[in-house]
């Protein structure tokens, strides 16, 4: 797929699904510690989310980085907006900011705040 086609695919994906996690591996078998950390936070929050295993398609693996001008994986999107990578998601989770964002976007999740 050309980069433009990849960007179109990504744009449609993040516009369609409320919560999208671009990661290495799957939620059952994350293949990178950072992806695994974000999966744990998603599971802890009881979030429904769709996952994209970037290892399945090198075009997406590179295209997602130019799509957001963000050089690493994982990447989390909520209602089409890029929220962050592992560090930012963990920081926001620990501060309760991630939960606030989800509430403000009407996305159901477990309400407690807990350090991961």
């Amino acid at each position: 797929m050309s980069e433009q086609k990849v960007h179109e695919w990504i744009g449609k994906k993040v516009a369609t699904d409320d919560v999208v996690l671009f990661m290495k591996g799957t939620r059952q078998f994350p293949q990178c510690g950072f992806s695994s950390q974000v999966v744990q936070i998603m599971e802890y929050l009881g979030l429904e989310y769709s996952e994209v295993n970037v290892l399945d398609d090198l075009g997406i693996r590179d295209g997602i980085k130019s799509f957001t001008n963000w050089p690493t994986i994982p990447q989390l999107y909520v209602k089409g907006e890029f929220v962050g990578g592992c560090d930012i998601i963990r920081e926001m989770f620990q501060d309760g900011e991630l939960q606030e964002l989800l509430t403000s976007k009407d996305i159901s999740h477990n309400k407690q705040t807990q350090t991961a």
């Binding site: 001008n69 963000w70 050089p71 890029f82 929220v83 962050g84 990578g85 560090d87 930012i88 920081e91 926001m92």
Partner: peptide, 9 residues
Amino acid sequence: RVQQHQLVY
């Protein structure tokens, strides 16, 4: 935070 990290990147 995203913008801050992008500056460092």
